[in-house]
Amino acid sequence: MSGTIEVKPAPPAPAAARVVRSARRPGRGRRPVRRRRTEAWRSLRRHWQLYLLVLIPLAYFVIFKYIPISNAVIAFKNYSPIKGPWGSDWVGFKNFELFFANPVFWTLLKNTFILAAYTVLASFPIPIILAIALNEIRNGLFKRTVQLVTYAPYFISTVVVVSMTILVLSPRIGFVDDAIGLFGIPAVDFLGDPNYFRHIYVWSDVWQTTGYSAVIYMAALAGIDPALHESAKIDGASRIRRILHVDLPGIMPTAVIILVLGVGNIMAIGFEKVFLLQNPLNLAQSEIIATYVYKTGLLNADFSMATAVGLFNSVINLFLLLAVNFAAKRITGNGLWS
């Protein structure tokens, strides 16, 4: 991630890491290993307080992040609460086979993928446009107001955003129906029709997160060398030209990383909001993997199946992230973990 979003002067590259890495270089015999070991001892003796400090947070990560990963073996077992995750009987890939054979599988996959892809497509370019537009106008009250107001919805809870969406779209009391009524369109029950679900989800998301997402691009724009703009101006470049040839290349590394994260996490689309917007009428398009896992696991208590579905999703997502990152690095030279 070198030279990407450096707003502050980046902290000097970890010197110690470099030492360690050079110590690993082959052809140096076994001495480095011994040296590493003594280094570790010295560090432990000298800074035992720091190790003590790290102990509880580390235990947190082991207990709440790594034990669940090991608990995920129940995807390959017939989980019994009495025998526990490791004591239950193995069933191999039975849960996965059952899931793939289930007609609901393709619907879930399709719903999850389309919803997430639509979200990324809509919420990737809009913050960039907002940031560039804000960057074009003078610093002043108007600019500060737009920033403050567009940023605000990010701090509203999902429950509230969803209920606002429902109220605004409701055929009787909401204003959206009145608005489209002006154009002679009859009232629509937006939440009762599965075909509207994706649009509602995505555009309420854009409403909530655009201002927040624009912040990071504003930072990247602020980091562009003003000399580039000056010389472009002297060469007679118009505002549009300077946006295209100075601003856009300047925020490219940032944009690539955000896109990689977005596309890479496509299968990990959040449970919270989808679940709240769901109702029996729009289920055909609103049932996604995350909500299915919740229902099978916690409502129907089929722990093994729910874990298998969740694991399938996590693995796909991990591969997707790695693949997209690889492709991005190949094409643009930017990616996570440089």
């Binding site: 669940p68 608990n71 995920a72 896992v293 919740y294 969740g310 996590s314």
Partner: peptide
């Protein structure tokens, strides 16, 4: 690295619930 890995991969809803 242990911390960063948890951002990429998680055990999932039910395994965490069991803990």
């Amino acid at each position: 690295s242990l911390l960063l890995f948890t951002m990429l991969f998680s055990g999932g809803l039910i395994p965490t619930y069991l803990v």
